[in-house]
Design a protein around this nucleic acid. Structure first.
Lengths: 248, 248
DNA sequence: CGTCCTATTGAAATTCTTCAACACTCGTGG
DNA sequence: CCACGAGTGTTGAAGAATTTCAATAGGACG
């Protein structure tokens, strides 16, 4: 992939690029570590684009040429066995950073689960800025550690939870990302599932039939309501959390 | 810790601490990022000690006060549910770094699986040196990324592999760490299992009975031989790898 | 010698998967 | 406008893999 074309010329070196001003990655993502000048430099090499669902952003084993920030939508990181068994090993949301730093090749495939908006830039530019801005590596490190924490939480879910607990855990995970207001007990949460049943199954290490049955059960027990197969309402997050991680 | 004579190539007035000279962490671990002066400073605050098996090095949810390097032995990182279900979410070997940087509390319990030798130092000293040596954070980042890669590989194993494949995968993992010479096809590998059956079960998300049965099967099919329950010989690593990750 | 810890083995029970059928939605084109 | 097919999701029944329960055995140690 050739690097992106310059799309805007700078009048002043020291103004935050227009595109970055309202960007979530600028504040909560890795770009928050950059000075205005660095942002300007980076923005000369970035491309924003929308990616259709089911499109691969990074392929496993492929040489890494660019990195991205997620501006919107959900990205799934997957691994595939040669006989077709598949596992989703991570889900990423805005303003997450996509890509494996300091590695020639990617260890996972990154694929758009929904329509995704990304801001991409060449590997070389990121590496260049890392050398000038140690705080950028710190941000990347923090993100890696967050992903590690999430992966380890998920290991417990995959290794030790029942199908019912797995599905409830998944619903909690999505609720926490998409409707974070409803964190606490007694709160109602609303959200659309960004994944279809097959993806949920690949995330939970189950079959689609088992996922479907467990969703039906949770619905019949009134822990959730489902509209159009994708829209979920959770009357009480605390109850769902208890189904995901039983206490005593 | 006090420097002795010899080693003339030192520009500064300090010398590599005696204890660090033969240390694996000095070369392959994070201490390789430090200058001699920084090593001297760090070594003034380090304690080396042996830790008996089943001893907790770090407790989940506990405030982090110190970090360690593993000098020898195997450390397991575990998560526990309130009803007793347990999952090992990582195994660490020398010269790995133990501890979650940039977090007040630990997300996992770190426990000695075998007798372990560690070199520990206070959290504050590490943080102090990180500020002076950006390369140290880079090393820590590389370790975090390695752990993330391993955790994601394991997600595939837990989510999508059969009990037989899980046990074979575990044996490959241990063989690769303890007898790394036998990487390639046709090679014989020898090693002692650092984990008892209950730990292996907690690592693989299985019961001890299933682990035992699968080991017995692999033995009867001559993929491995077992002595004293703990010592394993793998006549051909390629065959075991095929059992762990079937191709086509 | 008895006890604790670890590991193995068998039989029954359970969970989850597999296989199969069917229902719903959506866009396309006759 | 409706038929058609593809993609998605649900449900039922049978089957398989794994767990649970129970019994046994060996080694380490006081």
């Amino acid at each position: 992939m050739p690097p992106s074309k310059d799309r805007r010329q700078d009048i002043h070196n020291s103004e935050t690029p227009v595109l970055c001003r309202a960007c979530e990655a600028r504040h909560k993502g890795i770009c928050g570590a950059l000075t205005t000048d660095q942002l300007v430099h980076l923005s000369k090499h970035t491309t924003r684009r929308a990616v259709e669902r089911e499109t691969e952003l990074v392929q496993i084993g492929e040489d890494i040429t660019q990195y991205s920030n997620i501006l919107g939508g959900v990205v799934k990181l997957t691994k595939l066995m040669s006989d077709g068994r598949q596992q989703i090993v991570g889900l990423q949301f805005a303003p997450d950073f996509i890509g494996r730093p300091f590695s020639r090749q990617s260890n996972t495939t990154a694929e758009a689960a929904t329509t995704v908006r990304v801001c991409s830039f060449p590997k070389t530019v990121l590496e260049e800025i890392i050398n000038q801005a140690p705080d950028l590596e710190h941000r990347l490190h923090e993100q890696s550690l967050r992903e590690l924490d999430e992966a380890r939480d998920w290991l417990l879910t995959l290794g030790r939870k029942t199908a019912r607990e797995k599905v409830a855990s998944f619903l909690c995970l999505i609720a926490d990302h998409i409707d974070p207001e409803a964190e606490n007990s007694g709160q109602e949460a609303h959200f659309d599932l960004p994944l279809k049943r097959a993806d949920i199954a690949d995330f939970l290490g189950l079959t689609i039939e088992t996922v479907s049955r467990q969703i039906t059960k949770l619905r019949k027990e009134s822990l959730i309501t489902v509209e159009n197969n994708r829209h979920i309402t959770v009357p009480d997050m605390a109850v769902l959390r208890e189904a995901a991680t039983p206490e005593i």
